[in-house]
Design a protein around this nucleic acid. Structure first.
Lengths: 202, 202
DNA sequence: TCGATATATATCATTCTGATATATGGGGGC
DNA sequence: GCCCCCATATATCAGAATGATATATATCGA
């Protein structure tokens, strides 16, 4: 799913400028499951304009720079609905923090605790913020992703709170498995995946 | 965190080829919170070799193509530990499925149910697979990320199972908020974030 | 008055993805 | 026996995205 489609999605909710679209991915309702930067949004809007999927109106503002407000056309809506009808690609989760915590034994104790507590605080903040959101009057899709995010963050937060002291206190180097063991593990998983897919999933 | 650092992390667990490193991100212990493709791994290994952070030994195999086995040097280990001491960047989660489900009202009912059930099945599969993992003898870091992943997936799965029927059955277009309302919402969130960060978090 | 922050658009080097190319060998189906 | 698919293994590349930077204006607090 490219940024053009993401922009069309945002514009299906109402007219917006590139700056506003970016805010939707930075702090808005999409922030927790998608992101896009200026460097991809502005070129995407140019392409959408060329293709006739959006229109552009320059609006002068007092006390602020001019704004280019984009609006979706019928062709754009069709394009968006076509994209929505495809099979979605797999989720992609990237966490530098979890990668670091994986290598806890290589880290200094103070730094490890610092990272752990900052990560916990972040999740606690997200949970509180999403809980505080008023979900009356929202579309079912918006309600669903809100609940989904809350449920996952709550699961993660509870785990981190429950396991903090034991994790930070447990001994370094206990139980060390080598590369061969990891690769064997993986082979077993591969077979499972193949079996599951052959069984009819996805 | 660039792919060079990710490769060093894998190599800190034992010697490996580019192909094997890729498997670690595709199906191995890192699969659920990081990914890297050949197109980034092979160039990264070349750069690490030039920098003296790894060594390379070509190994002939019977019945299989030759293998380039990479091993971390002392300089490489130092480099990796330096990278681990930095403040980790923010998590990045991207889900095309959640983006589509956000726009549930734009989707055909059959397709919506299909996407929902496939997504649920995927999470159920992950939960079962991680539960089945033998965690005895693993390092505390490995144990932690396993538990973390399980807790988040369980939270998401429970939510999807509990809300399926209500979500799919609820009426289209109920409660429609416009762009202005979304942007107002965001402004409130921004202030919260600033307050929280000023308060000492992270 | 100075610096920081917010609004707003735009560009670009670097990086990463996803696809493709190349080569070998094993296993299953017919 | 033959064909096709899959797994192993390395490498490259077009296209896309990131993160940083440049530019300009206005507000707010110190």
């Amino acid at each position: 799913m490219d940024v053009k489609t993401l922009c069309l999605g945002v514009l299906s909710l109402g007219d917006a400028s590139g700056y506003e679209i970016r805010k939707m991915f930075e702090e808005g309702p999409f922030a927790h499951f998608h992101q896009a930067s200026y460097g991809s949004i502005y070129p995407a809007l140019s392409k959408l304009l060329d293709a006739g999927h959006v229109t552009c109106t320059v609006k002068a503002q007092d006390g602020r720079p001019d704004k280019k407000v984009y609006a979706m056309t019928d062709a754009g809506l069709n394009q968006f609905r076509t994209a929505l009808f495809k099979i979605p690609g797999a989720d992609k989760f990237r966490s530098e923090t979890l990668f670091m915590l994986f290598f806890a034994d290589q880290l200094d104790d103070g730094h490890l605790a610092e990272i752990y507590d900052a990560y916990t605080a972040q999740y606690r903040f997200f949970v509180e913020k999403i809980r505080a959101l008023d979900n009356t009057g929202l579309s079912r899709g918006r309600k669903f992703v809100r609940g989904f995010g809350l449920a996952t963050y709550e699961g993660a937060l509870r785990y981190m709170e429950d396991n903090r002291d034991h994790f930070l206190a447990s001994a370094k180097g206990e139980g060390w498995r080598d590369m061969e063991a990891l690769l064997e593990c993986m082979e077993a998983e591969t077979q499972d995946i193949n079996k599951a897919l052959a069984g009819g999933d996805k």
